[in-house]
Amino acid sequence: MPFDRWKPVNQYSLAWRLFQRHHTHFNRIFWSDQAARRRVYTFTRGKVKSIPAKDIFPLDEHPRALLENLGEWSQNYNAFDRWARIAAVAALTGYLETFISQLAYAALESCPALLVGGSREIDGVIHLKNNTFPELERAVSPLVRGEWSSRCSAYATLFGSCGFTAHISTLEEMRNLRNDASHSFGRPIASMRMAEKYLVERIDKISDARIQGFLGAVESVAKSIEKDITHRFVGAYESMRIYHNWPRKNDFSGYSLKSVAMDFGGYYQEVTSYGIPKYVGVSLIQHYQKL
C-alpha cells in the first residue's frame, strides 16, 4: 500500500496501539490475580477459623505480619480485594484518558485549523518542523477533565460530534469511583468529609460483572474515538513526528534516501515495535522534507 499522509502507517494510530497494550496488560494482571485468589482459598477449606493464619501462610521474613487468626485473615484479604478493584477502576480510567489525550494532541498538531473550526487546511508537519505549534493544552484539557458530559461537549466542539454519548453514565460512574479511590482510599468522598464516627468504613465491592462492564465501555469509547478522528485528522502524522524526533535524521549527508529510510525503519521498529516498509519510509521522509 503506497504512503498516504492521511492514513496511519500501521493501519491504526500509535495511540490506539498503546491503548490496546494497556488494555491487554490490565486484563492479564487483573484476572491472573483473581485466579490466584480463588486458588488461595482452597488452602483454607476445612480449617477452623480460630487457628493462626501464619500456620497456613507463613511469612518468615515478617513474623508479625500475620498475627490474626484465619477468620480475621479472610476478612482482611477480602477488604484488600475490594480496595484493589477500586484501584483497578482508577487504572482503567487513567489509561483511557491517556489515549484520549495522546490522540487529541496528535489530531490538533496534525490539523491545527481544528482550533478555529477548520479541518485539513494546514498540514501540521510545517509547525512540527519549525516548532511553531499553537498552544494546545487549553483545547485538550477539557477532554480529560471534569464530568464526562462536559468532556463530550468539548470533544464535539473540536471534532464535529461525539460518538460515545451512550457510555457517559458508565464513564461518570468510573470517574466518581476513581475520585473516591484517590481521595478516601476507595470510600465515598461524601461520607468522609464530616465523619460522625472516626472509624474505618467498609469499602463496597465491585463485582466481576461490573469490572467487565467497565472494560467493555472503555474499549468501546476508545474504539469510537480511534475510528472517528484517526483517518480524518491524524493519518501518518505520529510516524512523521517520530521521524522529526529521530536523533540521526540530520546525520546522513551523502546517503541515498533509501538508505536513510532503511535506518529509520530500524529506529521506528525500536520505538513502536512495528515495522515500516522501506518504500513507505521513503515517501514519508519526502513528504516531511518538501514542507
Rank of each mutant, 00 (worst) to 15 (best):
T42P: 08
T44I: 10
T44Q: 02
G46H: 15
K47Y: 06
V48H: 10
K49N: 11
P52V: 00
A53I: 00
K54H: 11
F57N: 07
P58A: 08
H62W: 05
A65D: 06
L66D: 15
E68N: 07
E68M: 08
N69M: 02
N69W: 04
E72M: 03
E72A: 04
E72D: 09
E72I: 01
S74I: 00
S74D: 08
N78T: 00
A79W: 00
A79I: 00
F80V: 01
A84T: 01
I86N: 08
I86P: 12
I86W: 00
A87Q: 03
A88P: 11
L96K: 12
L96D: 03
T98F: 02
F99L: 00
I100K: 05
I100N: 02
I100C: 03
I100F: 02
S101K: 15
S101N: 13
Q102H: 09
A104Y: 06
Y105P: 13
A107F: 02
L108F: 05
E109R: 08
A113S: 15
L114Y: 07
L114C: 14
L114H: 15
G117D: 14
G117V: 12
I122K: 14
G124N: 05
V125L: 14
I126Y: 09
I126C: 13
K129Y: 09
K129D: 04
N130Q: 13
L136K: 05
R138D: 04
V140P: 15
V140K: 14
P142Q: 12
L143D: 03
E147S: 03
R151M: 07
C152S: 15
S153N: 12
A156F: 11
L158N: 05
F159V: 02
G160C: 04
F164W: 10
F164N: 11
I168P: 07
L171K: 07
E172K: 10
M174Q: 11
R175C: 12
